[in-house]
Design a protein around this nucleic acid. Structure first.
Lengths: 229, 229
DNA sequence: ACTTTAAATACGATTATTCGTAGTTTTTAA
DNA sequence: TTAAAAACTACGAATAATCGTATTTAAAGT
């Protein structure tokens, strides 16, 4: 049996962070991890070393770390618990989606029992994504990473549907909710100002100007109009 | 402002245990704590010392520890979170009441945010007790400890209503649920066998024989028939 | 009052997680 | 290709939580 031996909440956090950085950049650099996990660089080095001993990751100095199969399995499990927790918070407890992420960071470590997770999944109606549009892995570790475009990469004229907010920061989420740019909304890019200036887009018959940094956290599903390629 | 400074999950567990032992025996002895928390005696001594430094408890060597006002405030808060968590598990996630307690032991430390607790309370319909009948403290630390009798102390002929199961052990709870002796059930003690033998009682037109140890974990509200004192 | 036993403490040690500073190594840019 | 900058590691140290094995102290029984 594949007994994903239990790791501490701390290591769960590390694995989760590594998973995300690996997705984005191919590997997780220690400096990026330090920033993401809000700990000192030396701490990362120490922990990384012990994680490698436990066969959770592979570390190539100056290149970054990558998950082993074992590490990835646990990471995905944590992500499943995290996103189901977020759903619990927003759908059942009616907590604001901007606060859900941070609270779920604690909850995800508390609901490790298989039965609870399954029951939670059922009560929530087996949701496919978290409230911010990020996919919820299945019980056996499948995760459907759809092919999406980063909003900031769309060119003027292109259309799409807001699908995922990948940076689940309370302030960003609150802002996006306040202006109505949430998953499911159709948008069309109108203009990209030069010198890394804002992106102007149209949605719900209104016009929006977003900074590039914000637009880089939003993934959209491109809509190919009139027989697009 | 009364800022109940945050303590670690471990200390929260200690405070919770001390609260319960203090209730029962006037003070929590280190040996009792060791048993209840499943750690070595030396560990208790160490932790107790650091808790005293933090002004959470008062320790009289060989006599036991007692909570300070500050410690009690935190303990009650933890108990509130614990019992609301149990309700979440049984009422919303439909988890068996015998499993709810142990899972709630982890959950209680994850839901420390005031907003979440309040929302949870509301969604659950502001329950007065946990699924096992134990009172849920109010937001500002009031806890209604009703005057109840221990089942084992009732004399033959006396009647009452099962109200609280104070020892929330999965096996015990499963057993009680299987025979139907849950909070709300009316009982009458029929007989108490000598030499610490079983207690025979009648409930729901059936006869039950319970060991004294089990009967000592069940609290009942006595029913005084025909103008009882 | 004295002795046995039970309870509690002292002490030494380990592991996990964290920090900060100092020193290397790699990359980048001139 | 060499110097500066950035990234990374080494090392020493602190704290929390835990253990086990003495040793000491209090309680109980004779």
């Amino acid at each position: 049996m594949l007994t994903t031996k239990d790791v501490s909440p701390t290591l769960e956090e590390y694995l989760e962070a590594i998973y995300k950085l690996e997705r984005k950049n191919g590997a997780a650099k220690t400096s990026e991890l330090a920033k993401m996990l809000n700990v000192a660089l030396g701490t990362i080095t120490n922990t990384i070393e012990s994680m490698e001993k436990q066969n959770l990751i592979k570390h190539k100095p100056y290149k970054g770390v990558n998950l082993t199969r074992k590490g990835r399995r646990i990471a995905i499990d944590v992500i499943r618990r995290h996103r189901l927790s977020e759903r619990l918070l927003t759908d059942i407890l009616k907590i604001d989606w901007s606060k859900a992420h941070n609270i779920a960071c604690k909850l995800e470590h508390a609901i490790s029992d298989r039965d609870i997770i399954r029951r939670l999944d059922e009560v929530l109606g087996k949701p496919k994504t978290c409230p911010h549009g990020n996919p919820i892995p299945s019980e056996d570790g499948e995760i459907l990473e759809e092919e999406l475009e980063v909003l900031v990469d769309l060119n003027p004229g292109e259309r799409g549907v807001i699908t995922r907010i990948v940076y689940e920061d309370p302030e960003l989420l609150e802002y996006l909710a306040s202006i109505g740019l949430v998953p499911g909304v159709n948008i069309q890019v109108k203009e990209k100002a030069p010198f890394d200036g804002p992106i102007t887009l149209k949605a719900m018959n209104r016009s929006y100007a977003l900074g590039r940094n914000i637009a880089s956290f939003i993934l959209v599903k491109k809509r190919h109009v009139r027989g697009g390629r």
